[in-house]
Simulated assay, not measured.
Amino acid sequence: MIFSYIGIIVLWLFLFCYIIIASIDFGAGFFALHAKITNQDKKLNHLISRYLNPVWEVTNVFFVFFFVGMVGFFPESALYFGTVLLVPASIALVLLSIRGAFYAFENYGQDSKLPWLVLYGLTGLFIPASLATAMTISEGGYITKHGSSFDLNWTELLLSPFSWSVVFLAIITVLYISSGFLTFYADRAKDTRAYKLLRYWFLFWGPPMIAISLFVFLSLRVQNETHFLSAVLNYWWLFLLSLICFIVAMLLTLLKKAHGWAFIMVIFQMGFAFFGYGASKLPYILYPQVQFEHAVVNDSMAMALTIAFICGLLLLIPSLILLLKLFVFDKEYVEGKKSQY
């Protein structure tokens, strides 16, 4: 039993790391496209390129670990999610392939063609929207069972206010996290033109993100009252801490001070909300069909997976920190005085 708890915590950490890193990447694509269309690309795109060049190869590693770990620890969840998420997951895979193709052309081509940049920018919004479908479905009410087979009720899903609110929350959160990091990055690079634009985007997307988060929370009461009551009664303090971190991040940015700490507050904000959501959802992985305590593999396999994934986490986190230190936050590299190669 203990391994099921350790396993779900480690997997949640992998998913959280992916959300933060991928959000910066996804949002950067949209900002690059917007800057190109509005003829502001000279202000912004060089800064985005300096961040993405050394980092884009490792972005999806955390998601791969989470996906493999989910199937390994909780094989019963694969039976449900593997069936009902076939279409959304396939769409996300195609979009990720398009982004990979863009990175190849960006790094080895002469320049960024507008059609590729459009695909790159739009996929940064569509991928989180498609992946957010898993969160929506996991709250229950969208899966119908016919004997030993499962079907996704697309009509119910597409007409659900909760479903669309989660999609919009995923998109806005991506833009919020990305603009928060890039504001800090522009300030560190002493790039005044990019800093002004990105600071505006960060302040712009903050309030809508809180508003849509509140709507998601309220609509959850209709979709899954059990989860809603657990969040309100048992884990309200995590969501309160998340709101406090949001206020601190906004104030620091408004005052144009300590942008590094402002982004750390963004990470804590997302962390408190993310783990509050996950903890209040337990013991269900998929409501009401799959409970993690019952769906976990046998103890010996769970122990082996736990050790392997903890080792993977201990390897990936220092590696990412080293990558950021050597390239992304190197003083000469961030100011454009040194090439990655």
Results as ranks from 00 to 15, higher is better:
Gly278Glu: 04
Asn224Ser: 12
Ala279Met: 08
Phe239Ser: 10
Ala249Cys: 04
His259Lys: 02
Ala273Asn: 08
Phe228Leu: 09
Leu255Gln: 12
Leu218Val: 15
Phe292Thr: 12
Phe215Arg: 05
Trp205Thr: 15
Lys281Cys: 00
Glu225Gly: 11
Gln269Ser: 12
Met209Gln: 09
Val266His: 02
Leu240Ile: 13
Gly260Val: 01
Ala258His: 13
Phe239Thr: 07
Ala249Val: 00
Ala262Asn: 05
Phe292Cys: 06
Val290Pro: 14
Ala262Asp: 00
Asp299Met: 00
Phe263Lys: 00
Ser219Asn: 13
Asn224Glu: 10
Tyr235Met: 09
Ile285Pro: 02
Thr226Asn: 14
Phe263Asn: 01
Ala279Trp: 07
Val248Gln: 07
His259Trp: 04
Val248Leu: 05
Ala211Phe: 15
Leu218Thr: 15
Tyr277Gly: 04
Ile244Gly: 01
Leu240Asn: 04
Leu220Tyr: 07
Ala279Glu: 07
Val296Ile: 14
Phe275Tyr: 03
Tyr287Pro: 07
Ala279Pro: 02
Gln289Thr: 08
Leu214Phe: 15
Phe204Ser: 10
Met301Ile: 09
Leu229Met: 14
Val297Tyr: 00
Arg221Lys: 14
Gly206Asp: 15
His259Phe: 15
Pro208Cys: 14
Phe274Trp: 01
Leu218Met: 14
Ala211Met: 13
Asn234Cys: 11
Gly278Asp: 05
Ala273Arg: 00
Tyr287Glu: 05
Gln223Ile: 10
Asn234Ala: 15
Trp236His: 10
Met270Phe: 07
Thr253Trp: 05
Met270Lys: 00
Leu218Trp: 13
Leu251Tyr: 05
Leu238Val: 12
Leu286Thr: 10
Ala273Ile: 02
Trp236Phe: 14
Pro288Leu: 03
Trp205Asn: 09
Leu286Tyr: 12
Ile212Lys: 06
Val297Pro: 00
Met270Ala: 01
Ala231Leu: 11
Leu252Gln: 04
Phe246Tyr: 04
Leu218Arg: 13
Ile285Asn: 07
Ala249Gly: 05
Ile210Cys: 08
Leu243Ile: 13
Leu282Lys: 13
Val222Leu: 12
Ile212Asp: 06
Pro288His: 02
Arg221Val: 11
Gln291Ile: 11
Thr253Gln: 09
Phe275Asn: 04
His227Asn: 14
Phe228Arg: 13
Ile210Gly: 08
Ile285Gln: 11
Val232Asp: 09
